[in-house]
Design a protein around this nucleic acid. Structure first.
Lengths: 250, 250
DNA sequence: ATGTCAAATTGTCTTTTAGACACTTTCAAA
DNA sequence: TTTGAAAGTGTCTAAAAGACAATTTGACAT
């Protein structure tokens, strides 16, 4: 809103937002992480969640949308709060302290962060490096073992929230392109729940919900039987839920 | 932990915790609210959620447990984070500003709060007024129309989280005494979901879960057929959930 | 043209769960 | 002993979940 009139001194040194940005490449769930490009002698160059301090006169949600847009250029997407993380030691790893010294006016301030997660269409977004990020990359959930600050913990909580949320709201469509196949949707749910789901039962249930529109259009150029393409039917979804229906789990 | 060595100047003026403490009197869900005892000419004396600033060197969860214990004397109870609330105007009602001036060193600071909800056995707790609270009272959810700060909004979100959570974890027992009847449990679920639930179907499902122990003991002194008393069976609950079962909804 | 590969697509049966529905039992107190 | 008030109980039906395997389709290679 008033972002262009803001100065660095308008930042609130004690509160930040961090974003867990999920993507899906039809194979695995990925998370957008930044590389701080530290070439320190002994400490690891850990990746971090994109995040930053908020402005003094800024709502938390607003800050999350702003940071997300600054980092990805994407707006009007699904965004949900994970929670507040405020362990006084969350910022105390040696490598994290080093790094903060190089980018913050008050590197020793205690920072309480509000974490958000968002679901984006991975192809709409080409990671571009942010001011203090040397790289921004999609990393598979399965290969993340350690992150800067308390970001690994935040990621675990975000995954759990996503798992719960998708059982009551079909937010997974935010991770898929406009047109998608049932197999892609099926694979997505398997990745999120981290367990195999019976193909026929999955298809039966999702089709019965009546929130997919068959585009009467087929995949092209695949070396096997081409799949039907579908899109999410927002109107039918509204109709379905306005009477309180909330069972989108598998 | 180190509470007795803490001074007022160790407080973090920008971050607080607020607690939505739910209770159940066998009739309705209640929330513990404090009365700030304002006798202002024109502005209303709105009730508030119990909450306070956190200490600089204190984890948020720890702060929530501390504040809760300071206010209620209760510990080792169910406590869960609702989320962070940080609207820059959340503290801007005239009556709230007035009050903050009387209790805070920095009454104009922007305060971001982490809200928690907890479920307590109402009879274990006799509200006792806290330093800056003139009264502490159990108020029925149904009669709360407006609260101080953004506390009404926090309450709504907390209610929603509770509703969702109780569908996947039988946390309602935290609101009941050790020994309770099926009718009391039934009524509790009706209050939380804000809709009637069929008695027979409710009893069938809860009994099938096998997480209740029949105490072979009856209610006494009631002017009608006395009810069997039950207690929550923690061991069976563990057995049930260790394979991923999470359907405690009705 | 034919064959092969890879993934898409489809249906049935069984078991479990949800939902609707009403009468009998038990104790206390009048 | 009667009355009032809530406790306690069973069946039927419909819907959903879960297990399970053969056939179809298009691309590509030969």
């Amino acid at each position: 809103m008033v972002g262009n009139t803001r100065k660095k001194t308008d930042l609130n040194p004690n509160n930040s937002v961090d974003c867990v940005i999920f993507g899906f490449d039809f194979e695995q769930i990925k998370v957008l992480l930044i590389d701080r490009g530290q070439n320190l002698g002994n400490s690891k160059n850990l990746r971090a969640l994109p995040g930053n301090l908020i402005y003094e006169e800024e709502d938390l949600d607003e800050a999350a949308y702003r940071v997300l847009e600054e980092l990805t250029g994407i707006k009007d997407i699904y965004l949900e709060q994970v929670g507040a993380f405020g362990n006084p030691n969350r910022v105390n790893k040696e490598s994290d302290r080093e790094w903060l010294k190089s980018i913050r006016d008050e590197p020793n301030a205690r920072v309480i962060t509000a974490a958000y997660y968002s679901l984006v269409k991975i192809d709409d977004f080409v990671p571009r490096a942010h001011s203090f990020a040397k790289k921004a990359e999609w990393i598979s959930l399965t290969e993340i073992e350690e992150l800067a600050f308390d970001h690994f913990e935040i990621l675990q909580v975000a995954k759990e929230k996503l798992k719960q949320k998708i059982k009551i709201q079909p937010i997974g469509f935010n991770l898929l392109p406009e047109k998608f196949t049932l197999s892609q949707l099926h694979k997505l749910y398997e990745c999120i729940f981290e367990k195999p789901l019976d193909k026929r039962n999955f298809r039966r249930k999702i089709q019965k919900l009546n929130i997919l529109t068959n585009l009467k259009e087929k995949q092209r150029g695949v070396p096997h039987k081409p799949s039907q393409l579908y899109k999410f039917n927002e109107e039918n979804y509204q109709l379905l839920t306005q009477n309180g229906y909330d069972n989108f789990g598998f």
